[in-house]
Nucleic acid binder design. Structure first.
Lengths: 226, 226
DNA sequence: TAGATTGTTAATCGATTAACAATC
DNA sequence: TAGATTGTTAATCGATTAACAATC
């Protein structure tokens, strides 16, 4: 597996502008780059023009050397003595992650959580757009949430195709999650974001991310208690 | 394949003041044990009595050898040819993480997100109890959310002391987050769970976890697109 | 028994970190 | 210039994996 060993590095002559990374990023690198992007996006909103690896480290809790190393694998984005330009680093990382475009989300569940998600700009800031909201409750169908009106699940297949849905977000009761996941899989969606507690069973080519705030708390608490 | 990135998402206020603390778990181990615990908790709800390291691996995306290795460091919890007893593994891990007890949470923000959190049992399942809800809007004070009635922020100090609040959860608009965090720090809370997009500034002994669903999506999308 | 799965070792690979020269 | 911060190296640490005996 020596050719896979290079996953995180691009080293060679073409490290500069626009050169496509020849290999897939490793899991760790992709995850960290995404985190840098979030902090940068927020820093930009706050009017910050440059940021140092140490500042990025303070916010992401990733070691500053690691950050510089992650970035320098793709080019020389920083200025010594100054730091990184926020705007240009944002677009460099977007290029590396190939997430510069718009991506469409379907949201399931028009309860409190669904409404919170629909009205937040946490997704919008990163190019994700909620283009459809579904609910199983017929009384909710037709109500408007954010800029969308709630649809019935029967429309799922049609909407996925017409709107080019890439991600399904489940903000539904635990018991409803697996059947919905099955529907999403059947309609061809490959990324499911699960806010319920269900342990979802999906084919290997479908990616499930289960959000688990309580797990993060347990973990934080351990270091608080010890 | 998803959440290896989560490992570093929370930080420890890791004050290495001379005396070695030989018994502390490493960040990675503590994070993984927390994940096992979540899956086990859910598996238990579904009536599962035993679970193999391979099944745990399927749900957590942690290598099964790694799981057996993590667990065997603390004792021989499994039965060869059978797997692990779900109930007993839950209590063993709780013991290791020292999170067997109840811990009290104060929730800030009685909007959609706050209501979703208050009515979810995602925290309750792991021994966290929302014992107070605050909102800055005087019209919301006194309303009841879940089993609590909404309080005014002025009561914060008193509540933290009386109710032994260990964690503050921020489900407020981004602009309101930093002042609230300052209040929490002043009242002695050491763990802050931030659902806003604010980049919070806190003293080094306070731990901030910022929830970032969009980051996880970016990350998932990268592997989908490549 | 026969099949399954743990507990454990040893080797390898990738991530993390400290340190520092380069240079803005 | 003087201070700050990047880019990079070399050493260390932790994760992953294959393999397999033990044993339920």
């Amino acid at each position: 597996m020596s050719s896979l060993g290079d996953l995180t590095q691009t080293t060679s002559a073409d490290a500069d502008d626009g050169a496509p990374a020849p290999e897939r990023l490793s899991l760790g690198v992709a995850a960290r780059l995404s985190r840098y992007l979030q902090v940068l996006t927020q820093a930009k909103k706050m009017g910050k023009e440059t940021i140092s690896s140490q500042e990025l480290s303070d916010y992401t809790h990733v070691n500053s050397t690691q950050i510089r190393r992650d970035l320098s694998g793709f080019g020389k984005f920083g200025k010594r003595g100054v730091g990184y330009n926020v705007d240009s680093l944002v677009s460099q990382i977007r290029k590396i992650l190939r997430t510069a475009g718009q991506h469409n989300i379907a949201l399931f569940g028009a309860g409190h959580l669904g409404k919170a998600i629909a009205s937040s700009d946490i997704f919008a800031d990163h190019g994700f757009r909620v283009v459809a909201i579904f609910d199983a409750d017929p009384r909710k169908v037709g109500q408007s949430v954010g800029s969308q009106s709630v649809r019935h699940i029967d429309d799922l297949n049609q909407v996925v195709e017409e709107e080019d849905i890439v991600v399904g977000v489940l903000a539904v009761p635990t018991a409803a999650a697996q059947p919905l996941a099955d529907n999403l899989v059947a309609s061809g969606v490959k990324i499911i974001f699960n806010y319920s507690e269900a342990l979802l069973q999906v084919p290997p080519d479908v990616m499930v991310h289960t959000s688990s705030p309580a797990v993060d708390l347990l973990y934080a608490l351990y270091f608080y208690l010890t």
